[in-house]
Simulated assay, not measured.
Amino acid sequence: MFALSRLLPLSLLALTLACQKAAAPAAPAVTPPTTTTFTNPLLTAGPDPWVIRRGDVYYYMHTTGNSLAIRKTAKMSDLGSSVSTVVWTPQLAGVNQRDIWAPELHFFDGKWYIYYSADPMCCDGHRINVLENASADPTTGTWVDKGRLAVPGQDLWAIDGTVLEQNGKRYLLWSGHEVASSQVQRLYIAEMSNPWTLVGPRVELSHPEYSWEQNGSPAVNEGPEVLKHADKTFIIYSASHCSTDDYALGMLTAPATADPLKPASWSKSALPVFVKNPAAHAYGPGHNSFFQSKDGTEDWILYHANPQSGQGCGDNRSPRMQKFSWNADGTPNFGTPVATGTALPKPAGE
């Protein structure tokens, strides 16, 4: 018994070692395949999309109607999986407003600013307002209401504010009414003394004059956005009413060193530069913004469009993005809206 009891553990050890040698090798770790493409739309809904990049982060906003929300993402192709953070709600701030439209996030002089349009339920309709945030991350910190942004003595209906920086100065661009009784939307510009103050006077840069700018009622020029390239400054704007399938993009062009307050500095393209593509499920494409790829080698347009005809100004408008090129004369070539569901290469660097 004594000898057997000593031999038994040795036998078990040998059996264990033999089993270990006979066991199948561990399976190698599986690395998920790298996706190099994305498809539009980026979100199921998102009218008036806006994006700005700071550092390695893209910050995105669109019209929600009753609040201001920011998404942040390292890759624009991942926008759909990003977290949306509500940063401001007017009722919580003691501000009586409704129908909040077209928010834009800008970074000036070390602080963040949001320009948005809202109906203050007085004063004959929408006005442009400004919020300020000193936090490094605009999804954190406190947003301070800097009030209404209007030309002194001309507090008229106004929407879609954006900022042009040229010749060391800043200018507000927006869509507004000539007089309180007029519903036609025109593009205006005025100089800014700081990010929340206009010094006036306002100057009209464009109004609906071509047939492609006058579909629907009222006739509309709105959503001005700044695009700079080489020695030129472009204002890409939306034309015709958003209730029509023929909402489209027009273009104003000026030298990059010209005085933007002089109407003669700007030339207006007689034809639209981006129009509907029914075969691609892109109706009423417009109210765009621009960004560069992560590595800075590509230019991209971000815009909204409806997937079906007759869907108008509602939340069926979804954000889409596509790369664009430049013509030999230095003007942008946006091509045509790409079909939803089409696999497109991600922006370079993603």
Rank of each mutant, 00 (worst) to 15 (best):
L10G: 08
L10Y: 09
S11N: 10
S11H: 06
L12P: 02
L13N: 03
A14E: 02
A14L: 15
L15S: 07
T16Q: 12
T16N: 07
L17W: 02
A18R: 14
C19M: 11
C19L: 15
Q20S: 14
Q20Y: 11
Q20N: 05
K21D: 08
K21F: 11
K21A: 15
A22F: 04
A22Q: 13
A24G: 07
A24Q: 11
A24C: 05
P25C: 01
P25I: 12
P25F: 00
P25N: 04
A26R: 03
A27H: 13
P28Y: 05
P28E: 11
P28N: 02
A29M: 03
A29T: 09
A29Y: 11
V30I: 13
T31P: 01
P32M: 05
P32R: 10
P32H: 03
P33M: 00
T34V: 15
T34L: 14
T34Y: 12
T34C: 08
T35R: 14
T35V: 15
T35K: 14
T36C: 09
T36V: 09
T36R: 12
T36I: 05
T37R: 06
T37N: 09
P41K: 09
P41T: 05
P41C: 07
P41F: 05
L42I: 00
L43Y: 06
T44S: 04
T44K: 07
A45N: 12
A45M: 09
G46W: 03
P47M: 09
P47Q: 04
D48W: 01
P49F: 01
P49Y: 08
W50L: 00
V51S: 08
V51T: 10
V51E: 08
I52P: 01
I52G: 07
R53P: 01
R53M: 08
R53N: 09
R53V: 00
R53K: 15
R53F: 04
R53W: 01
R54S: 15
G55A: 06
D56R: 14
D56T: 15
D56L: 13
D56K: 14
V57M: 15
V57L: 15
Y58Q: 10
Y59G: 01
M61E: 11
M61S: 10
M61A: 07
M61N: 05
H62K: 04
H62C: 10
T63K: 13
T64I: 13
T64F: 14
T64S: 13
T64Q: 14
G65P: 00
G65N: 02
N66G: 14
N66Q: 12
S67G: 13
L68G: 02
A69R: 08
A69Y: 02
R71Q: 11
K72E: 06
T73C: 10
T73H: 11
A74S: 15
K75L: 04
K75N: 14
K75H: 13
S77C: 15
S77M: 03
S77L: 06
L79A: 03
L79N: 07
L79R: 08
G80V: 04
G80Q: 01
S81I: 15
S81V: 14
S82D: 08
S82G: 07
S82H: 04
V83W: 04
V83L: 14
S84P: 06
S84N: 10
T85K: 05
T85L: 02
V86C: 02
V87L: 03
V87E: 01
V87W: 04
T89S: 08
T89F: 03
P90G: 03
P90Q: 03
P90I: 09
Q91A: 10
L92S: 12
L92W: 07
L92A: 09
A93F: 08
A93R: 06
A93L: 03
V95N: 10
V95Q: 13
